[in-house]
Amino acid sequence: MKKGTIMLIGGAVVLLILGFVIPISVGPPEDARVVIDHTKKVYSAPACFDQADLTNNLEETTLAQARHLSYLSESSCTDQELATERKPFLIAIFQ
C-alpha cells in the first residue's frame, strides 16, 4: 500500500473514534409537537398530557411556536421529556 493511502485510512479511523468519543448537546427539535393551554399559557409534552392540569382551551402546535408565544413548561415531566441530552457526535447525527 502507498503511504498516502495508509495515512488516509488512519485519519478516517481516528475521526471515527473521535465521533464516538466527543459528546455534544442535543436539544429537542423546534418542530417537536406539544400541547399548549391558552388559558394558563403553558405547554405540555404529549407524554405528559394525561397527568397535566390543563383547561379545555388547548391547541396542538410545535415547540417553536410555544416558545414564540412565551409559554412556560407545564411541569417537570415536560421539562424531562424535552430536555437537552449529551450524546456522542456520530450518534446524534443519525438520530
Rank of each mutant, 00 (worst) to 15 (best):
D50L: 09
T62W: 07
G10P: 02
F94D: 10
R67M: 05
K3Y: 09
M1R: 06
V13D: 07
A92F: 07
Q80N: 11
A83L: 03
D53R: 09
E85D: 06
L16Y: 14
F89E: 06
C77R: 02
S25T: 06
A12M: 15
L72C: 01
L72E: 14
K40G: 03
L16T: 14
L63E: 04
K40N: 11
K40H: 09
L90A: 11
P88N: 15
L90M: 11
A47H: 04
G11L: 15
S76Q: 11
P29K: 10
K40Q: 13
R86T: 07
L72T: 12
T84C: 01
L82H: 03
L82A: 06
V35Y: 12
D50S: 14
A47C: 10
I9C: 07
V26R: 10
E59T: 12
L72D: 12
V14M: 14
T78M: 06
L90N: 10
D79C: 00
S44F: 00
P23A: 11
M7G: 01
S75G: 13
V13Q: 04
T84I: 12
D37Q: 06
P29V: 00
D37I: 04
L16D: 04
I17S: 09
Q51H: 08
Q65E: 14
D31V: 03
R67H: 09
K40V: 01
H38P: 05
G19F: 09
V35P: 00
T39W: 01
L15V: 11
A92M: 01
K2P: 06
I9Y: 10
T84H: 02
G19V: 10
T55D: 05
R67A: 04
I9W: 09
F49V: 08
L18F: 12
V42P: 04
F94M: 11
V35E: 01
Q51F: 07
I36E: 04
N57F: 08
L15T: 05
K3T: 12
P46C: 03
C48A: 15
L90H: 07
A52S: 14
A83K: 14
K87G: 00
D31Q: 09
Q95H: 06
S25K: 13
P88S: 11
C48L: 12
K41E: 15
A12G: 11
D37S: 10
I6P: 01
F20D: 03
L82N: 03
G19K: 09
V14I: 15
S70A: 14
M1L: 08
V26T: 12
E85F: 05
F20C: 07
T39V: 10
S44I: 10
P46T: 12
S75I: 06
K3Q: 12
T55I: 02
M7C: 08
K41H: 13
S25A: 15
L72Q: 12
S25C: 00
L90F: 15
I6L: 15
L72V: 08
D79L: 02
E59F: 03
G4F: 07
P28S: 15
L8T: 14
K40I: 00
T62L: 07
E74K: 03
S76F: 05
Q80M: 08
H68N: 12
T39Y: 07
D79M: 08
I24F: 05
S25F: 04
D50K: 13
G4M: 03
T84W: 00
P23Y: 08
P29D: 08
T62P: 07
D31T: 10
T55Q: 05
I91P: 01
A47Y: 02
H68L: 14
S76N: 12
T5N: 08
